[in-house]
Computed example of a mutant assay.
Amino acid sequence: MISCSCMAYSTIERGSQFTADYRIYICDKNSRPISPLHDIPLFHNVSKKIFNMIVEIPRWTNAKMEISREEELNPIKQDVKNGKPRFVANCFPHHGYIWNYGALPQTWENPEHIDKNTDAKGDNDPIDVLEIGYRVAKCGEIVQVKIVGTIAVIDESETDWKLIAININDPLASVVNDIEDVEKHFPGLLKATVEWFKIYKIPDGKPANKFAFNEEAKPATFALNVVEEVHKFWRQLVNGETDNHEISLTNTTLMKDSFNISNDQANNIINKAPALGPCQPVESIVDKWHFIHQNRLF
């Protein structure tokens, strides 16, 4: 078991890193297995609007780690493409992800809902978070953040909100409260963020992503309204008010009769996963730098 910096949570690894069977399960302070999607509260502090963020991908890394929607307890796993673990391409001058990338628990972008701001449906995922503080987090870590803005990526005709947030323990957290503060204290990061999302799939043969709002970031108040909406959609999901879209609702704390399981049952799920093995080598092509000009690959 690997402890997270947030003492309330810890992680259990199964399988071998950089393979299709690698999983990271989350446990609470009592070492009880939980679902990061359902059991971790959205808010760390409601009155101060401080949120819990699940880190899926640490800054500068390429492995496309994500919360598994379909599996019981929703462990973090590496996405698979063409039968192989997926790594995101390095698009010059960026190396891997340029923020700590993750999601807010207890949120869901409803694929049946057409967003009035983007005129596109949700992507069936928890809402994404880009944490911009200086510290490189760990996969599976739960960090406390405040939200300072958002951009709206239109990814394959789906709304894919990207919340911009900062770790509350970052030295700049006290002076970064809204989107204009990001440009002031992190000059160039918003522009780089839009560029990153626009081009990162081009090496895979896909077109450049598009954005709502003419590629402009929206302020904190707007972003918080988006969070409120996707939290509402999550409540409808776990209450059975909408189709579950193959999302596992298994949890250990919500006390929903149909989906709540005991600690022993949760441990059995983890114990059925392959034992932790050695990290597997990564193909050298993962380190390749791709040069893109006017949305064309060179």
Rank of each mutant, 00 (worst) to 15 (best):
I50F: 01
R86D: 05
N110D: 15
I26S: 03
V227T: 12
N100S: 12
A137F: 01
E215P: 09
A208K: 07
A20T: 15
H290T: 01
E180C: 10
W289I: 04
L42R: 08
W60C: 11
N267D: 15
A273W: 06
I114Q: 14
I270S: 09
F298Q: 01
K48F: 07
K210C: 09
I179D: 00
N268D: 08
Q17D: 01
L130W: 03
K121N: 14
F233Q: 14
V227N: 08
P171E: 08
Q106R: 15
E109F: 08
D79V: 01
V136W: 06
K232V: 10
V182Y: 04
P93T: 05
D119H: 13
K29M: 05
V46C: 11
T159H: 06
V230I: 02
E158G: 01
I132D: 04
I142M: 04
L42G: 02
N214D: 15
K77L: 00
V230Q: 05
A89T: 02
N167H: 14
K198G: 07
K198D: 02
V226F: 04
F18A: 06
D123C: 11
K121V: 14
D160V: 00
I269L: 00
I154F: 10
F92D: 01
P36T: 03
M255V: 10
P105F: 06
I2P: 12
F87Y: 07
S47T: 10
D287M: 10
Y101T: 05
L189C: 03
I292Y: 01
Q294Y: 04
P75S: 14
E241I: 01
I127F: 12
V227G: 09
G96M: 03
P41Y: 02
C6L: 04
K206C: 05
E70H: 14
F92P: 14
L189M: 02
Y97H: 15
N271G: 09
L276I: 02
E158A: 08
H245F: 07
S284E: 03
P33I: 09
S157H: 09
